[in-house]
C-alpha cells in the first residue's frame, strides 16, 4: 500500500496534465472526501447493528453450531489457526455472512478475525498464512443470493430477475476456487 497509493496518485496527476483533465481531478478530491463522510455515516450504523448481533451469536450456541458446520472446510483453509478458537469463531461468522450476502455483517467479523489472528502471528511485520487466506476469500466471496444485482435487474424491468443466479454462481465459484488454489500454492512456496 505504501507504494501502490503514491503511484496511483502520481500517475493520475501526470496523466491528467497530459490529457488536460486537471479541473476534474481537483473536483474529484473534494467529492471523494465528502463521499467518505456519507459512506461512513451509513457504515457506522451497519457496523454497530452487526457487531451487536454478533456479540449475541458468540454468547449462544449458534456459534457452536456454525463452527461444527464449517469446521471441515475451515480446517482445510486455515490449517495454521485451527487451534485458535476465538479466530475460528469470527471466521465462521465472516464466512456465513459472506455466503448469505450480508456484507455488512461479514466486515466486522472479518476484522475481528484479523485481530485474533494477529495475536498468534509470530512475525508481526508480515501477514500470516491464515490472514492471507482470509483476505483473499473476502475479496472473492461466494454468495448464495446476489440480492443487489437481482434488485437492479428487477428495477430495470427484467421478466425474470433471478435467472442471473446460475451464471453468477458458476463464475464466483470458479473465481473463488482459483483464488484458494493460487493462495495455497504461493503459501507452500513461501514455506520452502
Amino acid at each position: 500500500m505504501n507504494y501502490l497509493w503514491p503511484i496511483l496518485i502520481l500517475i493520475s496527476l501526470l496523466f491528467s496534465i497530459f490529457r488536460g483533465t486537471i479541473q476534474d481531478i481537483n473536483n474529484s478530491i473534494f467529492t471523494s472526501i465528502s463521499d467518505v463522510v456519507t459512506l461512513s455515516l451509513t457504515l457506522v450504523g451497519n457496523m454497530c447493528l452487526w457487531c451487536g448481533l454478533m456479540k449475541i451469536v458468540q454468547e449462544t450456541s449458534i456459534i457452536k453450531f456454525l463452527n461444527k458446520l464449517l469446521n471441515p472446510i475451515l480446517k482445510w483453509l486455515y490449517p495454521d489457526s485451527k487451534e485458535n478458537k476465538e479466530a475460528m469463531k469470527a471466521i465462521s461468522i465472516n464466512t456465513i455472512s459472506n455466503f448469505l450476502g450480508i456484507g455488512n455483517a461479514a466486515t466486522p467479523a472479518g476484522l475481528k478475525a484479523m485481530e485474533e489472528l494477529e495475536k498468534e502471528n509470530m512475525n508481526k511485520s508480515e501477514l500470516s498464512n491464515s490472514m492471507i487466506m482470509l483476505i483473499v476469500l473476502n475479496t472473492t466471496s461466494i454468495q448464495l443470493i446476489p440480492t443487489t444485482v437481482i434488485a437492479i435487474r428487477a428495477s430495470l424491468g427484467s421478466p425474470n430477475p433471478s435467472q442471473i443466479i446460475i451464471p453468477i454462481w458458476i463464475s464466483t465459484i470458479v473465481g473463488t476456487l482459483t483464488g484458494i488454489l493460487i493462495t495455497k500454492i504461493l503459501l507452500r512456496r513461501r514455506k520452502i
Binding site: L8, S16, I25, S28, I29, S32
Partner: peptide, 17 residues
C-alpha cells in the same frame, strides 16, 4: 483508510486514465 483509498481512486477515475 477510506479517505486515502477514495482520494486515490477518485483521482484515478477523473484523470481519464
Amino acid at each position: 483508510t477510506l479517505i486515502g483509498i477514495f482520494l486515490a481512486i477518485g483521482m484515478l477515475r477523473s484523470s481519464g486514465l
